[in-house]
Design a protein around this nucleic acid. Structure first.
Length: 644
RNA sequence: GCCAAAGUAGCUCAGCUGGUAGAGCAGCUGAUUUGUAAUCAGCUGGUCGUAGGUUCGAUUCCUAUCUUUGGCUCCA
């Protein structure tokens, strides 16, 4: 019999007969280890404990822990237990797909009657019984024919089986897992791996119900998705639940209300009413971006928000983006509210004759766009129907694409880093099904963008079919407090729209040429980016964007006049200062400031009036002592600068 | 748009199986003149998302509709 060599985590090498199981090896190391073991990992592949090992490589025995590998197996098995419980409680249930995910697992299934939230408790109860019964996960292997027969009456499972067989690494074997004894207990088509027995599941919780489409296809069956999570121990589960609780405290919708930044109401779903304090933040962020890009040779423009249909027909929006546009009539003229700024920017480009010497021409606009997003997709500031993009379009030659893209990536990195985001997910989205332009142009555009990423030394993950209708794009993704992805920055290479809208420049050869257009936004939408920032900072914004930078707290009404004097002084200096002259005690006023997350509190009473000073209390830092107003202004000068 | 849930005072929420609504905070008034996270007292405030229906009677039950939440799909 062949020998295989297994390299253990301590670098020792074991030579065992091919076909030895992970369990046997665990036993040979220690009985206790064998008892605790959940699965093994051989060369990045996780296997059941009792699968025969047939190749040499690095080898780890996976024991209960809250490490990814252990959680992967536990959650996968937990999803099985969930499925079994649902099948029992709701006979006639069809199972579709139940994978482990980053923070737990889910199972998509079709029940004969709709599940409601209250059912989760029932399901959990049955799951606990199954876990208590501690039934072994038993793997059954069948050849293609037998396997397919086993699932032939099940639409989803036979589909899964066929796709499993089509996979590159398919061995032609279809595996099933029984929780218990074959023909006696419940079984499910599954590639595995699983834990040895249900009893190994120590901590799980079902979290929510959701709808999901089979294969994510809207036209396909509507399934019910049950989300749950599972950890190696109660502590891990509780820590996770605690994390969710903490994340909810950071929710920008909650903080946005508490800090009176904005509201959204029924009259205009998905559109933001920015309150005075929120408006300060919007303007601060705009000014920050404005100063950044002014230095990079952008020219700011302002274009109409309502534009005649004919332009949208020419640009392709009327065809490819129609259902996302708000339409409006002006007398008998059909107009649309702009969903993007690009056509308007081309109209500006088209005024006057452009020379190759004008390129690259960088045009920027804080353009307010409206998109009719489907009901049910809106989410606070993150996903809205009306938003301001920090938009920009770079008209350039093909040769200039790479350096322009690279420069832009640099800008994005710089901006994100200044807000504390250092690890940014970048996605490269290629041609979608619904698009304009020839495949040749798309080849060219995708190739150019790829070259540019090389120049920018950018790592990305591929996002096939998700590009804009006019060109491929890079997406810069940030996460909210719950770890959900939001696309913020983007840059898109467009060979189509300039041509469609007749953009031209005169080249060195005295001939007319069509420029390439790069659509780009560094933060994406001001709304979304602020939403991310609110959650990131939990309301404790950098001083320069804080709605209120300082609040004056007179100890009693007697010192209100002095406080007013100081406030005037601060406002003259450009510091956003409020005064709390309410008839309350200092402790109460301070509490209000803490809840409102005011960065600096300036306490004034008898002592301060006499000395002509203020007592400064900085949020999170505490008492900074007394100082003159000039000293306070000096102390905060650097942090108040929008650009450093 | 789809699945599930929710909508009660400015905010956060209570209101069991139908008998026209309560609390805390906020607000207002008064007392207090206050020193680093809540001073006390009194008062105001709701056609219970909207429109229908069942009923002697609906915040409560039914239907429709709008909005919101968690996901799916889609997207900045």
């Amino acid at each position: 019999m062949n020998q295989i060599e297994l390299t253990l985590p301590d670098s020792s090498v074991r030579s065992v007969a091919s076909g030895t199981t992970g369990l046997e090896i665990a036993k040979s190391i220690a009985e206790g280890l064998a008892r605790r073991a959940l699965a093994v990992k051989l060369n990045d592949k996780i296997l059941d404990l009792n699968r025969p090992l047939e190749e040499s490589g690095t080898f780890t025995i996976i024991t209960p822990s809250n490490d990814p590998d252990a959680l992967f197996v536990l959650r996968h098995s937990c999803a099985h237990v969930l499925a079994e419980a649902v099948c029992e409680l709701f006979p006639g249930t069809k199972l579709a797909y139940g994978p482990p995910i980053e923070k737990g697992f889910y199972y998509d299934l079709m029940t004969p009657t709709p599940l409601v939230l209250d059912d989760l408790a029932k399901i959990e109860k049955r799951m606990k019984e199954i876990i208590k019964e501690d039934r072994p996960f038993t793997r059954l292997d069948f050849n293609e024919k037998e396997g397919l027969e086993r699932v032939q009456d099940d639409k989803y499972k036979s589909d899964n089986a066929k796709r499993a067989l089509m996979r590159e690494d398919s061995t032609g074997i279809l595996s099933f897992y029984v929780t218990g004894e074959q023909n006696e207990n419940w079984e499910d088509l599954c590639a595995g791996p699983h834990i040895p027995s249900t009893g190994k599941i120590k901590a799980f919780k079902l979290l929510s119900l959701a709808g999901a489409y089979w294969h994510g296809d809207q036209a396909s069956d509507q399934l019910t998705r049950i989300y749950g999570t599972c950890f190696a121990d109660k502590e891990g589960l509780e820590a996770h639940l605690k994390f969710i609780e903490e994340a909810e405290k950071r929710d920008h919708r909650k903080i946005g209300k508490e800090l009176e930044l904005y509201h959204i109401e029924d009259h205009s779903p998905g559109m933001v009413f920015w309150h005075p304090k929120g408006t300060i933040m919007v303007n601060a962020l705009k000014q920050y971006i404005r100063e950044k890009i002014n230095r990079l040779g952008y020219d700011e423009v302002i274009t109409p928000e309502i534009v005649d249909k004919s332009l949208w027909v020419k640009s392709g929006h009327a065809d490819k983006y129609n259902e996302n546009m708000f339409k409006t009539m002006a007398s008998d003229r059909e107009m649309a509210v702009k969903p993007m700024n690009c056509p308007c920017h081309i109209e500006i480009f088209n005024q006057g004759l452009k020379s190759w010497r004008d390129l690259p021409l960088r045009m920027a606009e804080f353009g307010k766009c409206h998109r009719y997003e489907p009901a049910g997709t809106m989410h606070g500031l993150m996903r809205v129907r009306g938003f301001v993009q920090d938009d920009g379009h770079i008209f350039c030659t093909e040769e200039q694409i790479a350096s322009e893209v690279s420069d832009f990536c640099q800008l994005v990195k710089e901006i994100y880093a200044e807000f504390g985001f250092n690890q940014i997910l970048v996605k490269f989205s290629t041609r979608p099904e619904k698009r304009v332009g020839s495949d040749d142009l798309w080849d060219k555009a995708e190739h150019a963008l790829e070259e540019a990423t090389k120049l920018a030394k950018l790592e990305y993950e591929l996002n096939p079919g998700e590009g804009a209708f006019y060109g491929p794009k890079l997406e810069f993704v940030l996460k909210d407090s719950l770890g959900r992805d939001w696309q913020c920055g983007t840059i898109q290479v467009d060979f189509n729209m300039p041509q469609r809208l007749g953009a031209e420049y005169v080249g060195k050869d005295n001939q007319k040429h069509i420029p390439v257009m790069l659509h780009r936004a560094a933060v994406g939408s001001i709304e979304r980016f602020l939403g991310i920032l609110i959650e990131e900072f939990m309301g404790d914004f950098p001083l320069w964007m804080s709605p209120v930078q300082a609040r004056l707290l007179p100890i009693s009404e007697k010192f209100a006049d002095y406080a007013k004097e100081i406030q005037d002084l601060l406002i003259q200096t450009g510091i956003r200062a409020e005064i709390d002259d309410s008839n309350e005690k200092l402790g109460y006023k301070i509490r209000q400031c803490e809840l409102q997350k005011v960065p600096f509190l300036l306490v004034v009473g008898e002592k301060e009036v006499t000395e002509g000073k203020v007592s400064v209390r900085q949020r999170k830092e505490g008492d900074k002592g007394t100082m003159t107003v000039a000293e306070f202004i000096e102390m905060t000068a650097e942090a108040r600068k929008i650009i450093r």
